[in-house]
Simulated scan of single mutants.
Amino acid sequence: MKQDTLTETLQQLGFSQYEAQCYLGLLRQHPLNGSQLSTVCGVPRSMVYQTLNRLEEKAAVVRLKGEEGEPQQYEPVPPGQVIAHLSARFQATCEHLEEELNALTASRPAEVVLNIVGADDILRRASFLVRQAQRRISLMGGAQELAALEQDLKAAVDRGVRARIVSLGSPPAVQGQVVTYLGENVSAPTRFLILVADAAHVLIATFSPETTPTALWTENQTLAQLLSAFLNTEYYIVRLSNTHPALVREMLSQVLEPEDRDRYARILLFLEQQAEQQAAEQTRSRAEKEIRS
């Protein structure tokens, strides 16, 4: 990243231009006294010590103990510590602001539905919801999207969030309640992603090979409850079909309406193949037991 870009980024995080220049100058060469730093980073000598004092307040630089009579030297605080400090301060400010704004709200604000366009932006929003979840995540989607969320899902489970996931394809390597459906979904080739976080935040996305992926995000409580119930049902249906494919195929074929039979033909075929595979495995297992006995 170029010097100008780094300076602009630090300014976005609350640094002044002189503060950004001084901090970057010290990272490149340290320790330095004010006069030396002025030469290195281009901040006027008359402003450099004021700037260093402000950087001390930001916990971005430290003074070094030196010989009496020698110019005061400064050392940069490592970037990781600076970013962690800024992040914590920013988070605390946001939490305080949220409390103050909520206190001003006479009634509940109108619910907002945010439209999101583009796969990258959709996955960034999904990742944010997973990282912010505190209690429960309900999730259903294709292998490609779930793989992109795998690390955030692992971190969520590690901090105690309960995850229930229905994976359409290879599942993410996540501890929790995960079921996998390896057949072709009725919406294929369009993939979809449904995420409910803490029964409050909802993201619904479609990924079509023919159009730009789109999604909507909302905090509508009713929709969150409905989708949570839907995902629970899907979880148990997939789990049941994996365990008893012949039974599920028979039950589904009996209740399908005529107009839906073409749409569900591939699912019925997949369940039939799963049942045949399961029966073959059971036959082979019995034969092996008889041989051993």
Rank of each mutant, 00 (worst) to 15 (best):
Q274P: 03
G141L: 08
G142H: 09
L256F: 06
I267T: 07
Y181W: 15
T206W: 06
L168R: 09
V202F: 12
A215F: 12
K2M: 10
A103F: 11
A147T: 14
E95K: 13
R284K: 06
E145R: 10
L24E: 04
S16N: 07
P109D: 12
L252Q: 13
T283G: 03
F128R: 11
V43R: 00
G66I: 00
R286C: 04
N242L: 04
D121W: 05
V82G: 10
C41D: 03
L6E: 08
R286S: 06
M140K: 11
P171L: 05
L231W: 11
T180D: 05
V82M: 14
Q282I: 03
G25F: 00
L129Q: 15
V82P: 10
I83F: 13
Q254C: 07
S187Q: 10
N242A: 14
L26A: 00
A126L: 05
L223V: 04
Q36G: 03
Q221F: 05
N102I: 02
P109T: 13
V61D: 02
E234A: 15
A88H: 07
T206E: 14
R286L: 06
L252M: 15
P189R: 12
L52M: 00
I237E: 06
N33H: 01
V43G: 00
G169L: 08
R28T: 08
V157I: 07
D4E: 12
L269Y: 09
L223Q: 06
M47T: 00
H96N: 14
K58G: 10
Q50C: 01
P76W: 06
P172D: 02
R263I: 06
Q254T: 07
K154L: 06
E8G: 10
T51A: 02
T39G: 01
E56V: 06
M251I: 11
A60R: 02
P171E: 05
E145M: 15
V117M: 13
Q273P: 03
I116H: 08
R286W: 03
Q225A: 09
E99V: 14
N242T: 05
V178M: 02
R136M: 08
Q177H: 03
R63G: 04
Y18N: 09
Q151F: 02
V117E: 14
P31T: 09
E98A: 14
R28C: 02
P76F: 10
A84Y: 01
P78M: 07
V178I: 09
Q151C: 06
R266Q: 15
L193I: 01
M140G: 12
G34S: 02
C94Y: 05
R261C: 07
Q72W: 01
D158Q: 11
T180I: 03
R249A: 14
A224I: 01
E281W: 03
H30M: 00
E150M: 07
E184S: 09
A279L: 04
L123V: 07
E145D: 15
E257H: 10
L114D: 08
I291K: 15
V166G: 03
A163F: 04
G42Q: 06
N242P: 07
C94D: 11
A110V: 09
E75M: 01
A88N: 05
E234R: 13
E99Q: 15
Q3Y: 14
G34R: 00
